[in-house]
Amino acid sequence: MIEIEGISKRYDATTVVDDVSMVIEPRTIAVIVGTSGSGKTTLLRMINRLVEPTAGVIRLDGADNRSLPGYELRRSIGYAIQGHGLFPHRTVAQNIATVPVLLGWDAARIKRRVDELMTLYQLDPQAFGPRYPHELSGGQQQRVGVARALAAEPNVLLMDEPFGALDPIIRNKAQEDLLAIQKRFGTTIILVTHDMEEAVHMGDKIAVMDAGKLVQYARPAEILAKPASAFVETLVGASEKPFRLLSLGRVRDAVETGAAEGEAIPADTSQRDALAELLWSGRPALPVTGADGKPLGRVTVDGLVKRAARPT
């Protein structure tokens, strides 16, 4: 659990982060959203003390994050940034091994961990381990960046616009990978982004920041349904709201009894994608199949449209 209490950061006359308090539950993903200059990155960097706060306390599992020297604290927290920041003079394997080496793990354990992470990220350790970062594609570099952040099995992972430099298709894949890995390791993730779509898709909770202040901290559905201020409303994007809301749910939860003609939709597709498919195919309803391929029922345009309305 991460408790942020009354945290502020001032540089001379300017207040970058202004009295922010929030609690991040273990094993969840909290996304901090805001425009540039909103203080979201500074807030993130105060958690691993890359920036020292002017006032306030941050506690990790109850312990003040100032009870350790900064560099030791940072070795226990994963950190991934936009443009990945891989060390260009070290191989992929050496990059991933950075924190374990700093922590003094023995060579066999490091190798095991590096191989495990690379396999997890669909990078063949034999082929990719000895390569240098510039020999990889953008998507591969990003994966190595996250693997490096996870190498020492941190409980907490901080991510600053980790997908910012990726093109849309690779970004979707990277987001899915991250969600899968978060489920597998149970890591608590705090992710900073300016992209509301990404926030709604990834976050268990979303923190909206504006001019250094925490404007709203709530579940995605609540942010969409009851934006706390005009600013949040704009950020959410009025015309996008129904679709964002739909993207939160899976088809599985919108299944109606009955049968329908046409190509079946898998149950774990998002409701938004299902609606798109319905509209595109020109049919009022499509069949839904489970993971095992068995039919579960159908999904209808009318049903989804109702779900897209403002929750009451």
Binding site: N48, L50, Y71, E72, L73, R74, R75, S76, Y79, I81, Q82, G83, H84, G85, L86, F87, P88, H89, T98, V99, L102, G145, R148, L158
Partner: peptide, 28 residues
């Protein structure tokens, strides 16, 4: 490159480790 130095700090390298393991090799 700023993000590389940032990554080195974020990984928990001390000032000396950053110099020897990252800054000097990169400026070599």
């Amino acid at each position: 490159p700023a993000n590389v130095v940032e990554a080195a700090r974020g990984a928990g390298m001390t000032g000396w480790q950053r110099l020897v393991k990252v800054e000097l090799p990169l400026s070599a």
